[in-house]
Amino acid sequence: MRGYGGRSYGLDEPRSLRDRAQQYALLPLRIFLGVTFVYAGLDKLTDSAFLSASGTGSLGEMMTAVRDSAAVPGLVDLALKSPEGFGYAIATGELLVGLGTLAGLWTRLAALGGALISLSLWLTVSWRTEPYYYGNDLVYLVAWLPLLLAGAPCWSLDALRPGRRRGRI
């Protein structure tokens, strides 16, 4: 049986606390990011004001407000072509990324999606946040990277896939 990090364990071989801690090290991060992105997606999908092109609390109003301060104004312009469609795309993307992360299904793909969503929000909405550590999108971007690199080695549907059980990714 292969453990986290490629170590091989026999069925009767005891594992140290350190080995078990390494195996489960990404689980709290996976749960936090999964729950947060599911919540964010559902919150957006159920907020009619957010999914509007204009008005208080709308995505259109927010994107218009950040357009001139964004690192990549072209992304904002793209979103402003159809704020409702962009809002549904972001919300659905967050929901799918969160569910995939929680279930550990195609975890690296879900982490890539989460990182891309966070990157796009950082380059548009929170780019001018000062000091930079007050902006949460950059932190989310960096938080996705360990899951992108390592996947979900335990308590995941990925770990149940035949290729993963035999130690192949």
Rank of each mutant, 00 (worst) to 15 (best):
L119S: 07
L17F: 12
S126R: 10
T56M: 11
E13N: 00
T56W: 10
L105V: 03
T92P: 02
L123S: 09
R7K: 12
V76F: 09
D158A: 06
R166N: 07
L95K: 06
R166I: 01
R165K: 15
G60C: 09
G151A: 02
R15P: 05
T101I: 12
P146S: 03
D19Y: 02
F37G: 08
A111Y: 01
A115Q: 08
L160I: 06
R161K: 14
P28W: 09
W106R: 14
T124L: 10
D158S: 07
L109G: 11
L116F: 11
K44H: 13
P73L: 10
L116Y: 10
G3T: 03
V139R: 14
Y9S: 02
R18G: 11
S156W: 03
G10F: 02
S58K: 10
L147T: 04
C154M: 11
L99F: 01
L75M: 12
L145G: 02
A65Y: 13
V76H: 02
G34V: 10
L145D: 03
R128L: 03
S126L: 10
G5K: 01
Y24W: 15
L17M: 11
M63S: 09
A91S: 12
G3P: 00
Y134N: 14
W144N: 15
V97L: 03
R165D: 06
G114M: 09
G60A: 06
G57A: 11
S156P: 02
A89M: 12
V139A: 14
A91E: 06
D158P: 05
G85V: 05
R67S: 11
A110E: 06
A143E: 08
Q23V: 00
A53G: 14
P83S: 11
V142H: 04
P162Y: 08
C154E: 04
G85K: 09
T92Q: 08
L42Y: 12
L121W: 00
A150Y: 15
T124D: 09
L42V: 15
V139S: 13
A110H: 00
T129H: 10
T92Y: 06
G57N: 08
G5M: 05
R168C: 00
Y134S: 03
D19N: 09
A89R: 01
L112T: 11
W106Q: 13
L148F: 15
P162S: 12
G114D: 03
R108Y: 05
I169T: 14
E130W: 11
S8T: 08
D68Y: 08
E84I: 13
D158F: 02
L75W: 04
R165M: 15
P162N: 06
L11W: 13
G6E: 06
D77R: 04
M62P: 04
L75A: 00
L147D: 07
D68C: 05
G135I: 08
P83F: 09
L29F: 06
L149S: 10
R128A: 15
T124M: 04
S82T: 07
A79H: 04
A111D: 02
D47P: 03
A150C: 13
I169Q: 13
G34P: 07
K44I: 08
A40Y: 00
M62K: 13
L59T: 01
Y133C: 01
P73Q: 07
Y133T: 12
E94N: 12
E130A: 14
G151N: 10
D158N: 02
F50G: 00
L149R: 14
A91T: 05
L157H: 00
L78W: 15
D47C: 05
R7W: 03
